[in-house]
């Protein structure tokens, strides 16, 4: 495979989670999401449990992908940030390294300026962690998450009538 898989471990996730929580507090934002560019949620802090984070992640990634496509067409490198202002809630998105999107949802209890300032610092810390993760993934041989012992039956069972999908 050309692109190394995104792999996440306990240690790094804890560090990422801590940065997200600190960012949420320092910027007085409602919610912080870290989303893989492919639309998968990596970490969340704040009021994420009241949100449909799966849908949000996919749409945020679609949005960033579309903007990235526009940037390429007009020969701009990549837009590094986006901001959408709503009546109640505003959203700030920025790229962390090349693979991850940092999303901040905030309301009137803070300002865009403060959010931007805090994001900048968090972004630097996050970039380092994701760079390390990428290096780790590239240097360790790809491993089988299932430990080598899954069978065709295991996979078939996912589609049984009484499986999680249909049961």
């Amino acid at each position: 495979m050309l692109n190394p898989q995104l792999v996440m471990y306990d240690e790094e996730l804890k560090q990422i989670q801590a940065i997200a929580e600190k960012l949420q507090q320092d910027s007085r934002a409602q919610t912080i999401l870290l989303v893989d560019k492919n639309g998968q949620l990596i970490a969340a802090a704040g009021g994420a449990d009241q949100l449909d984070t799966t849908s949000l992640s996919s749409l945020v990634a679609g949005n960033v992908a579309a903007t990235g496509g526009i940037a390429q067409l007009i020969k701009e490198e990549e837009f590094t940030g986006q901001f959408h202002e709503g009546k109640g809630i505003s959203i700030h998105m920025s790229l962390v390294g090349r693979r991850v999107i940092l999303v901040v949802l905030f309301d009137k209890s803070t300002t865009h300026g403060l959010v931007r300032l805090r994001v900048k610092k968090a972004n630097q810390e996050l970039t380092k962690i994701f760079d390390d993760l990428a290096a780790k993934a590239a240097s360790t041989p790809a491993l089988d998450p299932f430990g080598g012992d899954i069978t065709d039956d295991d996979i078939d069972n996912l589609f049984n009538d009484d499986s999680d999908l249909f049961g």
Binding site: L6, V7, M8, Y9, P145
Partner: peptide, 11 residues
Amino acid sequence: MSFINYSSREI
């Protein structure tokens, strides 16, 4: 590209 999360044990 799959995302393997060993922390939450999700693929």
